[in-house]
């Protein structure tokens, strides 16, 4: 008996260890190293003495870090709210219409999902060319359509650059929430809808009071994914307005600020491991806290059949 349970444990270890080792070394260990590193002073790659929360204090209160940090964080918030309001709302509505088997529904589904598969880098560079002021497709189109006054340097104006990049990202990703919601709405039992219609409920009412409550799990996952995605925006900025989030930091995000701090580029141009790790820790905490909040919020609103 003892022999058997011993060999059973050996089998469990055999199956679990390789995967667990990779996850431990490359995901969990770095998390703790980030925490640890953020509590020390650094000179280049050399760790100096214990700093306590000094690195965090510098991020929140010391120029230029505080200014860059809150500016970047504000842009991440813009990413989240705009994506929720435009992309995910449209996704829910599109998903609903697709599930109503409108003509061409399968074609819409397939085409909508095409850009989801492309790399952010390719999409970013493609639209950077299209959005170029003089020769780009977008301004040329506006010019030929008689809307020349709308033409502008889309990525060069501080007030709109972030929203333009978000729009490009929505172009790439809208198909994802659409098809997630489509599948979720398709899973709503037909007799539920039938009963609601027989009771004389209008379509709007059925949508808000039957369908939406029943797809809360999908709404929750999309919200959490949007939060994680918005806090980790990097490639979109890197390819479209560059690592320093130009013009004049107006498109900067935590991701690009973090990268510049870690590998050199914030004012002094030197890598700042301590402050960089602290920004990394803040990104971890924000991701974790916002996802947890979203899950708690939606869990309370879930409807079981």
């Amino acid at each position: 008996m003892n022999q058997r349970s011993l060999s059973r444990n050996a089998w469990i270890a055999f199956f679990v260890t390789p995967g667990l080792a990779i996850v431990a070394i490359f995901i969990i260990l770095p998390l703790f190293m980030s925490l640890f590193n953020s509590l020390y002073f650094w000179r280049g790659m050399a760790r100096l003495e214990f700093a306590g929360l000094e690195n965090f204090r510098r991020i929140f209160f010391q120029y230029p870090f505080s200014e860059r940090f809150f500016n970047a964080l504000g842009n991440n918030v813009k990413w989240f709210t705009t994506t929720m309001l435009v992309q995910n709302t449209l996704g829910l509505l599109f998903g609903y219409f697709l599930s109503r088997r409108i003509p061409g529904s399968p074609v819409f589904q397939r085409v909508f999902f095409v850009p989801v598969l492309f790399s952010i880098v390719a999409v970013g560079f493609l639209w950077r060319l299209y959005l170029t002021p003089g020769t780009g497709l977008v301004n040329q189109f506006l010019l030929q359509a008689g809307l020349g006054s709308w033409a502008r340097p889309w990525l060069g104006e501080q007030a709109i650059a972030t929203y333009v990049i978000i729009a490009v990202n929505i172009w790439r990703w809208l198909g994802f929430p659409t098809l997630v919601f489509y599948a979720a709405i398709n899973n709503v039992p037909q007799d539920c809808l039938e009963a609601a219609y027989l009771d004389g409920a209008s379509e709007t009412r059925v949508f808000f009071q039957v369908i939406v409550p029943l797809v809360i799990p999908a709404i929750m996952i999309i919200t959490v994914l949007t939060m994680i995605g918005s806090l980790n925006v990097f490639e979109q900025i890197y390819t479209m307005t560059g690592l320093s989030g130009g013009p004049y930091y107006s498109t900067d995000t935590l991701g690009t600020l973090f990268y510049r701090t870690a590998f050199g580029g914030v004012d002094t141009g030197l890598p700042l491991i301590g402050v960089g790790s602290a920004i990394g820790v803040i990104i971890y905490l924000l991701t974790f806290a916002s996802s947890a909040l979203a899950i708690l919020y939606f869990r309370g609103r879930e409807t079981e059949l």
């Binding site: 667990l20 969990i28 590193n37 980790n232 491991i273 991701t287």
Partner: peptide, 21 residues
Amino acid sequence: LLFLSGIMLPLKAAIIPLFLI
């Protein structure tokens, strides 16, 4: 749960320790 935590943690935020490792 250890495996699950890997889904929630954004790996990009750990780029400094990953670089060192």
